[in-house]
Design a protein around this nucleic acid. Structure first.
Lengths: 199, 199
DNA sequence: TCTCGAAGTGAAACGTGTTCCTATTATGTC
DNA sequence: GACATAATAGGAACACGTTTCACTTCGAGA
């Protein structure tokens, strides 16, 4: 099925393979967390995951695929945690801001990791479109859920709004990662944008 | 003055140096336009600009600086052209959409070039913050001017709004470049976002 | 004009992502 | 258990961004 794409855990037969895949992603996150994008070196990932370089490339066709997939996994986990807690806030805007603030703070707590994942996400080309799309969907779902808690039905308008907010959030994150804005400015900018859009 | 940054044309003494710099940027744009980010290889740029590799690196400390600077130059030119023409449209939203559509169409007419410049912009790290900031300012000015034609005084709110729109535009561009959305979807998304924000 | 320092040249070398190849080890089938 | 096939290991090799260095050329001041 997937020739140019990363192997998903579902299409991995044996449990040994699933474990290998997890080890690789763990090593990726660990290295990224420690030294950012540059520290995620394919040889280092392979060694830390106790896997040959060729095997690493069999599981993930490029560094970008690897990082974007790792990003997706982290995102899924974060979303699961978020989904359990009710989101405080009376209005859509308040809830969205709460979610974004929480997520952003989480990311800013690990700048190197955020650097690696953001850069990978932005640098990805067509070949990683599938993985990127998965992350985008997660983000959109997270936001629409904050906008309408408990409601799974969302309108096209809501999705469009969530996308716009997601866009701003990503740009703000990039600006922060590249040192163009501080954490406070990032938060303020995002809050302003949300209040502008959701009113 | 600038040790880690690209040499700006102002701080270049001789005209021979200014010409070298222009040749380098021309070669960059030509290669990018022909084959995108990957085709902008430093050796190829040096050769096409008829300059030694070491010289290229003296003018631009990295491929990213080179591309972002080239992007800034293209942007300045585009903005000059835009500035001469009055912008059609009765409302702020209409005018902003006109500008964005025009600019986007221009970019989409040269997908490879857009690929190269967008990826460089998004991938840039702290060391290119200055060049990135220059592009951001240009973009913001372009948008505020579309919002309030003929008025040079803009409020903080206007700048914030322009930033948000710029964020969305960049994200949309990235999505288009990475093949996640078509040109039509990109245009529609942008228009929707602008009408959402400017109302 | 001569001299000196800065700028440019040309080429080698290094680091890291990626590819490729052969030997070895698992895994499933008869 | 023996075999066929796929997966993995281990490592060399290649591409391109980047650095380095020895040498040459240029340009401004004595």
């Amino acid at each position: 099925m997937s020739s140019t794409n990363a192997l998903t855990s579902e299409e991995l037969g044996s449990s040994a393979q699933r474990e290998r895949r997890e080890r690789i992603l763990d090593a990726t996150i660990a290295l990224a967390s420690q030294g950012g994008f540059d520290a995620v070196q394919m040889r280092a990932v392979a060694e830390q995951a106790d896997v040959a370089l060729g095997t690493l490339y069999r599981y993930f066709p490029s560094k970008i695929h690897l990082l974007v997939t790792a990003l997706a996994r982290e995102f899924e986990r974060a979303e699961k945690v978020l989904a359990t807690r009710a989101i405080s806030g009376d209005t859509s805007a308040d809830r969205v801001i709460t979610v974004l603030r929480r997520t952003t703070r989480g990311l800013q707590g690990d700048p190197h990791l955020t650097d690696a994942l953001t850069r990978a996400f932005m640098f990805a080309d067509k070949s990683a479109a599938q993985e990127i799309h998965a992350v985008g969907m997660l983000l959109t779902r997270m936001l629409t859920r904050a906008m309408h808690p408990g409601i799974d039905e969302v309108s096209d308008d809501d999705i469009a709004i969530a996308r716009v907010i997601g866009d701003v959030w990503l740009s703000a994150l990039v600006a922060w990662v590249t040192g163009r804005s501080t954490a406070e400015e990032t938060a303020a900018h995002m809050e302003r944008a949300v209040r502008l859009i959701l009113r």
